[in-house]
């Protein structure tokens, strides 16, 4: 795969030149942030976790053995970081999953910001709720397939599970999403 980030990662692994690290961070930070944001649902937390992910890249790059592409290794790191973070946060706060997410309900001002198209906002909030209500494994696979456009075989590498597991998890996720959106749609009528 012609990912220029791969060459950057190899260069930094070999030379440990801070300028290469800066280029590497610049190349990947938005992608890493996007994935993490979609998993944790909070912009500030996503920024902090992106920083933590890059710190782990710096510290642990020697452990990348090139058997997987660098971005596969990086996605794995980022997804696991986000999932672990969210799991710990949910446990620490003893709040049922999804109920403390900023997007589960409108924030003050959020509805006003979008009031030019209220119907679209309602849909948006419903979809966010449905995504955030998915179990972590399902949400991770939806994020990687639907938003990051990774092939399922690559997702299996990222998640460290069998291709069949990825498929069955994706099917389950879509069944849940379909049910959730249908149910909410009926409730609103």
């Amino acid at each position: 795969m012609d990912d220029p980030g791969q060459a950057l990662a190899v260069r930094y692994q070999m030379g440990r030149d801070p300028a290469d690290f800066e280029r590497l961070v610049l190349h990947y930070r938005d992608r890493v942030y996007r994935v993490i944001y979609r998993l944790v649902g909070d912009a500030d937390e996503a920024m902090d976790l992106t920083q933590e992910a890059m710190l782990r890249v710096h510290r642990s790059l020697d452990q990348w053995d090139h058997r997987a592409a660098f971005f596969t290794w990086l996605y794995r790191l980022a997804v696991n970081l986000a999932i672990d973070h969210h799991r710990r946060r949910s446990r620490d706060r003893a709040v049922p999953y999804g109920e403390d997410f900023p997007f589960a309900d409108p924030r003050p001002g959020e509805v006003e910001r979008y009031d030019e198209d209220e119907e679209r906002d309602v849909l948006l909030l419903r979809v966010r709720r449905a995504i955030l209500d998915l179990p972590e494994a399902q949400r991770a696979i939806v994020v990687l397939r639907h938003y990051e456009h990774l092939p399922l075989a690559r997702i299996a590498e990222v998640r460290g599970v069998a291709l069949g597991t990825v498929k069955s998890t994706l099917f389950a996720a879509f069944r849940s999403l379909r049910r959730a959106l249908e149910a909410e749609g009926k409730e609103k009528v």
Binding site: P18, Y33, M47, L124, V127, A130, I131, Y147, L181
Partner: peptide, 20 residues
């Protein structure tokens, strides 16, 4: 429906100095 959900990207100036 999934396509409608945006990601609020941080403004570039907030990323300045991330590597350092």
């Amino acid at each position: 429906a999934l396509d409608t959900v945006p990601v609020p990207m941080p403004p570039p100036e907030r990323w300045d100095g991330l590597a350092a």
